[in-house]
Design a binder for these strands. Sequence first.
DNA 1: ATTTAAAAATTGATATATCAATTTGCAATG
DNA 2: CATTGCAAATTGATATATCAATTTTTAAAT
Lengths: 225, 225
Amino acid sequence: MPPKQNNAAKHAIYDQIRSEIITGKKNPGERLSIDTLKNEFGTSVTPVRDALQMLSQEDLVTIKPRSGYYVTLVSLKELNDMLELREILELAAVERAAEKITDEQIEELKAVHAGFTNDNDETYSRYTQENIIFHYLVAKASGNDSLALHVRRLHDRLARFMIIIRSGSFMTDVHNRLIDRLIARDPAGAKRTLKKEMDEARTAIMDRIMREEAGSWHLGAGNAT
Amino acid sequence: MPPKQNNAAKHAIYDQIRSEIITGKKNPGERLSIDTLKNEFGTSVTPVRDALQMLSQEDLVTIKPRSGYYVTLVSLKELNDMLELREILELAAVERAAEKITDEQIEELKAVHAGFTNDNDETYSRYTQENIIFHYLVAKASGNDSLALHVRRLHDRLARFMIIIRSGSFMTDVHNRLIDRLIARDPAGAKRTLKKEMDEARTAIMDRIMREEAGSWHLGAGNAT
DNA sequence: ATTTAAAAATTGATATATCAATTTGCAATG
DNA sequence: CATTGCAAATTGATATATCAATTTTTAAAT
């Protein structure tokens, strides 16, 4: 997380839009109108533009100059590339994490995991957020903050598609097993467990999307121009 | 490279400041005054703020709200983390690149390499830029654009420190050897060659900096507050 | 001389106004 | 009926003005 900035308006707008994109409340291709947003938040255009500008730098928003701001459309290839990159980053991270994770970090991980194991009544958006945090904490335990940050940002962009994988117990089981391997300080085992999870997620996502969106060029609901 | 945006003012400012930070013309900690920049470019504050906002999202600029914009200060740990991350990303990239690089891509690589082998009269800033392009092209040959983009962005942030490694022939030799291994479609050899380069760069950078900046908390010249 | 407090100045954040490009809709034409 | 060209409307980019925070200066007190 970047250093806390007491920059009220801009960050409130940024956080909300970001969260709405990540959790899929705003669909790819959907327009983000400055005018609408500024009314919604009761501000002027400046903080809205700032927020959208920031999001575009994270590839969550695409700017068509003098035309509009849109939730970024992801192509099939881009999605596949991101999933591959995810494996590279997270495998490197767990390997290191399993060697140097502290007991406190394990407790933190357990706490987060318990948090989204229990309450099934919660919305998927909450689940999505906590899944990101779980994987971020694992990456953080690698000791490499830069690596961890990249993992988190990538997860942000992938989150919309991860919803496909929300098959209840599967993820819970895998996360439990991963925690076990981390407690055992077993790099190879942790790597194997995580790789299995990521591979299954990847094929599930790609299969599902190839079937559902066979005709369209870009992913997501909107199908906007 | 993000899709071309015909957004004149903002992008001109963004490109120039970015380049000045990367090549070390602007030192870490140095202030980037909106007022100065707007006069320099003959624009109003809006495009300047946009550009700085974007740069802060890439961690090249740090915002102190209601106070000022500064070239980001990098701690020793952050530098070390980034160098480690670089190895993770680039090793994964060459491995794939050596398997699937096309003849055209090899020619492109040779061309860029020749470009900064010959003219020694050029400034280091030119050298820095071309080194980034070389490594970016290798990553691009992996076929994973997302991975390649991350490599490029990381190099942007590392470039300032790479200048330490500009020991003439060393880099030229290694790059030649790397091209050889790519032509031979030898993943293991390419990986070994690149790892050697990166390891040497890393220790050289860290050693030099630990000696030079022993006292100060942050890296770079400025030592600004 | 050093520290503290208050005030002045600097600077960025936010708001509003104007400008320029793009997009949309309608009408004319083949 | 489809297509092209023009005009109107929408929308973002840029410019300017105002506001609020921070930083610096200065002067007083210890």
